[in-house]
Design a protein around this nucleic acid. Structure first.
Lengths: 333, 333
DNA sequence: TTGTAAGCGTTATCAC
DNA sequence: GTGATAACGCTTACAA
């Protein structure tokens, strides 16, 4: 077996004393070639350890079945679940998936977008993170998940879960149990997902005849346990009082729980808490968290289905998809 | 702006009435070109929305700075942390990373390996999962993480955490607190990592003068919470008794905890439990879990450093790295 | 059934 | 400083 780098289709053809066309034909199963020939070629390919060069092939056929996926943070279980689902489903249909972790950084996202373009991706899945505008968006079929940007590539669809309903159900859940001062803990960036959840929350309060109290809207600048702990602790120290707290993610709920415990407030006795996403920590935390579950499987399924449609030249079935959410009751309410 | 597909270096050169060589030179900053020319070209590139074609470039220069990373399950936080670190660090050095989720399936791993080869990757990071032999391993610089296979590519290094010490420390921790019947809950596939941890566990028992009791070795066929729950429940029902349980991952510990609770056994009173990895669930579970922490940051740092060295033609600094682990004491012991 | 050769978008080696 | 042009590895008319 020769040095892999130098084994090309030509190497194979020379060894056999045939033309490269013949070798190409048996490799791709196109055209017609005699059984004996096919045998010989296959054996030579095996012996030489020949591997087709995807770049050369992609260049020639202007194809290469590659799609990109942009995700803010792969360590976040909500995102990694989607990525895994999407990758598996696309692999089954013959597409490779190039995963780009932006770490929520705009510069990295730009870098990846450029890089994906040079790699001639055929499609793109973009999982939110933030709503920033991008200069150089690849002109390929695109599926936005958890986001619905105004300026969109022509061939695109958006898949969101029903955030407004989620916010509504979350607030509803504590209202139903008699809470009257329902606080909200959310992201201070005005992400569309967070805004929708807030809208749902406000509507629920409204239909319960409760006045809006802006002082009960708590925000964090970064969505993690620690920031939630700090924000809730600070609110408590500032004398804010509430009997329920609707959180925009499970991790925020977790931090809130810690702050509440630290302030000797019982849950769900004195304060009820609800999370969002239903990542596994919600079920296994010290106090299992009541949460709004997003249907990750359905979202990824739709994403792949629509993306493949568009990449095959068909129009997407809908421009906007809203996937239902469900409330999972556990012990914090 | 024309249809992106058709904007090539030639399009740009024609618009300007210059040769493709000139355009190539300004794009790559190689050779010399007059300032005015550079200006004109840059503007035309901008206007036409020209993006270099990575495949053509890669074909010509036989390069394309791409590395592959094979990982069993990206939803597992231990793995996703490594992947994130590696991708970020390599991006900084100009490499793209192609992430392959094998979902612990051999056929998928084979498929990805082949696919990576055709894409002419320059290096490979392989994060365990299982120890199976692969037929077609790409002949490129390789870093194995959490695994140390016998048959290795010539340019390769292996980075493991000190699993034996981890197993030892875990057992030691409960022994020190007076436990005498220390059980082990592990993977039934004979992965090298699991075997090492078991060895450490056995040595600890031995130095405490305790006889080995094979009936205290519990196994699961799939490492997750549910299987751990089932295995431990079954052991308990079969009348097995132990006052400590050393688990090979935090998720196993979590399942064990649930089984123990279900059997009305108090933790850490009647049974002490220790986990492994220190994923975030360990800190936030109902009962925060004492666990052996793997130094993910250091492992990924080393991986990138060694991989880059090898890809630049230098030899790796060591063929085998053992990264220290540390015990994190929490409330299950 | 098989071979010849053009061309995909680049870069690099020559000339000029 | 700039322009032709060959070559990278492959697919695909078109010929034979």
């Amino acid at each position: 077996m020769k040095d892999r780098q130098s084994v090309s289709i030509k190497t194979v053809s020379e060894k056999l004393g045939v033309s490269v066309a013949t070798v190409s034909r048996v490799i791709n199963g196109t055209g017609s070639v005699s059984p004996e020939m096919r045998e010989r070629v296959l054996r030579a390919v095996q012996e030489l350890g020949y591997v087709p060069n995807a770049m050369a092939r992609g260049l020639r056929t202007n194809s290469l079945p590659l799609v990109g996926i942009i995700v803010p943070d792969i360590v976040n279980e909500f995102f990694s679940r989607i990525v895994l689902n999407v990758q598996l489903a696309l692999a089954q249909r013959g597409y490779s998936v190039f995963i780009c972790n932006t770490d929520e950084r705009h510069d990295l996202e730009q870098m990846y977008l450029a890089s994906l373009q040079t790699m001639q991706i055929r499609g793109l899945v973009c999982i939110s993170g933030y709503d920033m505008e991008n200069e150089a968006w690849p002109e390929v079929p695109t599926v936005y998940i958890d986001r619905n940007p105004e300026t969109r590539v022509s061939d695109s669809t958006s898949i969101e879960s029903d955030n407004e309903s989620g916010g509504y159900q979350a607030a509803q859940e504590v209202l139903r149990r008699g809470c009257r001062r329902v606080a909200l803990l959310t992201d201070d960036r005005r992400l569309s997902t967070a805004v929708s959840r807030e809208t749902g929350y406000r509507k629920a309060l409204e239909s319960a005849g409760l006045p809006a109290d802006e002082s009960l809207i708590l925000t964090v600048s970064r969505v993690d346990e620690k920031n939630a702990y700090d924000a809730v602790s600070y609110a408590l120290q500032s004398g804010k009082r509430f009997d329920a707290l609707v959180c925009c993610t499970d991790w925020l709920a977790l931090g809130a729980l810690r702050a509440l415990k630290n302030a000797h407030l019982s849950v769900p006795g004195e304060v009820k808490v609800v999370g969002y996403d239903d990542v596994s920590i919600a079920a296994y935390s010290a106090l299992p968290i009541t949460t709004v579950r997003q249907d990750v499987d359905e979202m990824s399924r739709l994403a792949v289905e629509e993306l493949v449609r568009m990449m095959e030249g068909k129009p997407c079935r809908r421009k906007n998809w809203i996937v239902p959410v469900s409330l999972v009751r556990r012990e914090t309410t």
